[in-house]
Simulated assay, not measured.
Amino acid sequence: MLKRNWKHSLAATTCLCILSACQTTPSRPLPLAKQVDLPRFMGGWYVIAAIPTMFEKGAHNPMDHYVLEPDGSITTTYTFNADSFDGKAKSYQSRGYVLDPSNAIWGQQYVWPFKADYRISYVSPDYSQTIVAREKRDYVWIMARTPSIPDADYQLLVKMVGEQGYDVSLLQKALQRAPQK
């Protein structure tokens, strides 16, 4: 009996060692905006570039719109045209919940009860450009209040994304067309 327990213990220990070896080393914490003024952050943001989720692939004119609700939650509406500028208009809605005093870390709820990690890692002083990221470094969004930004600004934001630990070769420029008047 002792021999059998010893074998089970050895097998369990071996499995734990293998699993811990497969575990990734946590990367350094994602830099965050020092303080996000929520009312200033609300409104429309054009996606300039992203490491997109599966729902965003092929999106034209992608845009996030944020509304601060009386209960402190944030209604987020993502809109885009599917597959072309004149493609079918689509939208997805989620609810954000601020999780820290800086207002930079949100839980974004698409399906109850799960909240996705959503972090404002940078917002320009005039609230015209932002980087929204995730601690896992799997998705990231460079956004602006306008459908395009100067190339020098874009390159600086891409550099910041790289410094945060993202593989910038995965960034895809969004397909934006200025709104028709």
Rank of each mutant, 00 (worst) to 15 (best):
residue 134 R to I: 09
residue 150 P to N: 04
residue 48 I to T: 11
residue 11 A to K: 08
residue 175 L to A: 14
residue 36 V to Q: 09
residue 133 A to T: 03
residue 29 P to M: 10
residue 8 H to A: 13
residue 151 D to Q: 15
residue 65 H to F: 10
residue 139 Y to M: 09
residue 176 Q to Y: 09
residue 145 R to M: 10
residue 39 P to Q: 09
residue 132 V to Q: 02
residue 164 Q to T: 04
residue 79 T to I: 08
residue 175 L to Y: 05
residue 96 G to A: 03
residue 99 L to S: 03
residue 73 S to T: 14
residue 13 T to M: 09
residue 151 D to F: 10
residue 70 P to H: 07
residue 59 A to L: 04
residue 61 N to M: 01
residue 143 M to D: 06
residue 78 Y to R: 06
residue 63 M to N: 07
residue 111 V to F: 15
residue 117 D to R: 08
residue 65 H to C: 10
residue 154 Y to A: 07
residue 20 S to P: 01
residue 138 D to Y: 11
residue 124 S to I: 07
residue 149 I to F: 04
residue 57 K to L: 10
residue 121 S to D: 07
residue 33 A to M: 13
residue 101 P to E: 15
residue 117 D to V: 09
residue 122 Y to N: 08
residue 156 L to P: 00
residue 64 D to L: 12
residue 37 D to L: 09
residue 7 K to N: 04
residue 131 I to T: 01
residue 174 A to R: 02
residue 149 I to A: 05
residue 77 T to V: 10
residue 72 G to H: 02
residue 95 R to F: 10
residue 125 P to L: 07
residue 38 L to K: 07
residue 101 P to Y: 03
residue 113 P to G: 02
residue 151 D to V: 14
residue 25 T to M: 12
residue 38 L to S: 05
residue 179 P to N: 08
residue 167 D to N: 14
residue 44 G to S: 14
residue 156 L to Q: 15
residue 73 S to N: 10
residue 97 Y to E: 12
residue 141 W to D: 01
residue 109 Q to L: 10
residue 69 E to R: 15
residue 62 P to G: 02
residue 39 P to R: 07
residue 117 D to A: 06
residue 26 P to L: 14
residue 62 P to A: 03
residue 100 D to W: 13
residue 180 Q to I: 13
residue 11 A to L: 15
residue 1 M to A: 10
residue 63 M to E: 13
residue 140 V to N: 00
residue 181 K to M: 13
residue 171 L to G: 00
residue 54 M to C: 06
residue 70 P to F: 06
residue 146 T to Y: 03
residue 65 H to Y: 11
residue 47 V to E: 15
residue 161 V to M: 03
residue 108 Q to W: 11
residue 173 K to W: 11
residue 6 W to I: 14
residue 46 Y to T: 02
residue 49 A to M: 09
residue 131 I to K: 06
residue 64 D to C: 01
residue 124 S to V: 04
residue 19 L to W: 06
residue 18 I to H: 05
residue 51 I to M: 09
residue 128 S to V: 08
residue 157 L to V: 03
residue 177 R to L: 15
residue 137 R to G: 02
residue 115 K to F: 11
residue 124 S to W: 08
residue 45 W to H: 01
residue 164 Q to S: 07
residue 88 K to T: 11
residue 181 K to D: 13
residue 136 K to D: 15
residue 10 L to N: 04
residue 97 Y to K: 10
residue 94 S to D: 12
residue 160 M to I: 14
residue 152 A to Q: 15
residue 42 M to T: 13
residue 24 T to P: 00
residue 132 V to M: 02
residue 90 K to D: 12
residue 160 M to E: 14
residue 71 D to P: 04
residue 127 Y to E: 10
residue 68 L to H: 02
residue 62 P to F: 01
residue 109 Q to F: 01
residue 107 G to M: 06
residue 15 C to K: 09
residue 28 R to M: 13
residue 130 T to V: 15
residue 140 V to Y: 00
residue 101 P to T: 08
